[in-house]
Design a protein around this nucleic acid. Sequence first.
DNA 1: GTGGTCTAGACCACC
DNA 2: GTGGTCTAGACCACT
Lengths: 128, 128, 128, 128
Amino acid sequence: MPWNFSQDRPIFQQIVDIIVMRILNGEYKTGDKLLPVRDFAVEAGVNPNTMQRALTEVENMGLIYTKRGDGRYVGENSVTVEKIKSEYVLRATHDYISSLKALGLQDEMIIQSVCEELKKQKTEGRNL
Amino acid sequence: MPWNFSQDRPIFQQIVDIIVMRILNGEYKTGDKLLPVRDFAVEAGVNPNTMQRALTEVENMGLIYTKRGDGRYVGENSVTVEKIKSEYVLRATHDYISSLKALGLQDEMIIQSVCEELKKQKTEGRNL
Amino acid sequence: MPWNFSQDRPIFQQIVDIIVMRILNGEYKTGDKLLPVRDFAVEAGVNPNTMQRALTEVENMGLIYTKRGDGRYVGENSVTVEKIKSEYVLRATHDYISSLKALGLQDEMIIQSVCEELKKQKTEGRNL
Amino acid sequence: MPWNFSQDRPIFQQIVDIIVMRILNGEYKTGDKLLPVRDFAVEAGVNPNTMQRALTEVENMGLIYTKRGDGRYVGENSVTVEKIKSEYVLRATHDYISSLKALGLQDEMIIQSVCEELKKQKTEGRNL
DNA sequence: GTGGTCTAGACCACC
DNA sequence: GTGGTCTAGACCACT
């Protein structure tokens, strides 16, 4: 099942986001060995070069590292993970609220929107 | 003062977003006449072609219309505005919450993040 | 005249070094427009992708920036240039002296080597 | 305590450098018997194949030789050692000075950098 | 015409 | 078998 990519952003970036997300939420744990680039590329349904580029980016972020001739591993640095995670949350929240305020929404309406969405997702979760 | 554009997204799209935002929040009102493309381009500090393309997009969304030989005007259709606005809010909220949940955050933590950001922005607003 | 690359290091890295060097020593000045990637690639005698990768790296270092659909320019930030320059000097000096000391050379012998090399290069310079 | 390797160069090469360095500075003396490959590999924390390759290189340089069924020994040829040593110094000095000159540094500034680094290392040495 | 992305496929060095 | 680099060539979006 090749991954699902949207057309409006570079594929390699979307791959970066997916992998980072999996590390941040614990799906890929410290010390885990990743699939070989080529296999990983097949799984994602992209060219090995594209996967390679994505992994290089993730490595530059400090989340994974490479053992030459061996493979890639999820980094030990849990501090980095927590830092990136909280930065992400802060930025996402800031962007979200700023955009709604720019639309003229009041604080209460924003909170209300959030609560409604939470309820909706809870209901959907039950029905799966 | 040329507008501020980030490098990671097409400039014309960012212009579209800004104009749409101004219509949605009432800065540009129904019936208002927009600046001529060239002047508008100068104000934004971009190439006229870029501004042209952005305006075409906004027109396709149904928010503005062109009087040939006269200029561009903000559309009369307030229903369209409200519809786009609520759709935007719903989608932004959904994306925001989905991404945080994917990171493993609980509902309470999400609400807490929102409230903190609201407080922070209120404080910043005072200090301006 | 295609540039001269050694085989023991990735070509793109050598290109990075060359471009960085040209910026640091003032051959490429603030605001200068670089050659288009493809032309630059031809000049260096490499594939456009290779040149692209090198330029991306230099951009990540903050020394150049891209105007979309226009071209690449040398960055304004002279602070960055001076910082990178002095870091380079410090590191090169440290590595150089450490390696000689590891070989058992005394301080005086190191200074003597440096002075001899300086003299030699001065002589060569005259003969060109 | 496994040796410390940087990721940007082949491990076997770094091992070669270390061993050569130890021979050049007298830590391994003429006639000394080296550890068996496997033990040596364990000490360095690398794969035996990697250590094997490194030792082969050092042997090709003429600094060590193999007695079949016995082990490896540091070569008798002190002339070779001195020759390699002086070549190394010359080349390192040349590369170092050339790179600084390419950055636009004057002779005096180069000498000053060297002296500062020597002072710094002397100070650090005292504090250990 | 500019940079950016992606694919395809090859070759190499390392472990 | 592993990652890394490079080439070739195509296509797209932006200005």
